[in-house]
């Protein structure tokens, strides 16, 4: 599996920020404000993103117009589902500071903390 590169993230970030469909040329123009880049690089990566199902596209006139299939929030939610899932599969895929807890367990944690504090204060 190919790593998701910086340019891919840059393109997605712009399309999310704009909130409207855009051509590879639009994206290039915006990136070129910061650094030089060729049209073909942007076009290639946009097609890769389309191939990965992250962008959908349709033709307007002669140019392809791209737009994200999911919102940034949806991607964040997917990311957090994995991170907060409690039991990553397989184990050790990621290691959390704290596993998922029930309200009762959180309460038990608080009272344990309180007990120690009172003890140290008295």
């Amino acid at each position: 599996m190919r790593r998701l590169g910086d340019l891919e993230a840059e393109i997605m970030h712009r399309l999310w920020a704009w909130g409207r469909p855009a051509t590879a040329r639009d994206v290039l123009r915006d990136i070129n404000k910061q650094r030089p880049l060729s049209y073909s690089s942007v076009k290639t990566v946009a097609d890769i993103l389309h191939g990965k199902g992250m962008l959908k596209r349709h033709k307007e006139g002669r140019a392809w117009v791209y737009e994200p299939t999911c919102t940034r929030q949806q991607y964040t939610a997917a990311l957090m589902r994995e991170a907060l899932g409690g039991n990553p599969d397989p184990a050790g895929t990621l290691v959390s500071f704290l596993e998922r807890m029930t309200p009762e367990e959180t309460d038990a944690l608080r009272s344990a903390l309180r007990t120690v504090r009172t003890r140290s204060e008295s």
């Binding site: 409690g86 039991n87 596993e99 998922r100 959180t106 944690l109």
Partner: peptide, 8 residues
Amino acid sequence: GAGGAGAL
């Protein structure tokens, strides 16, 4: 599912 018993 909870995995918080260990936290305590």
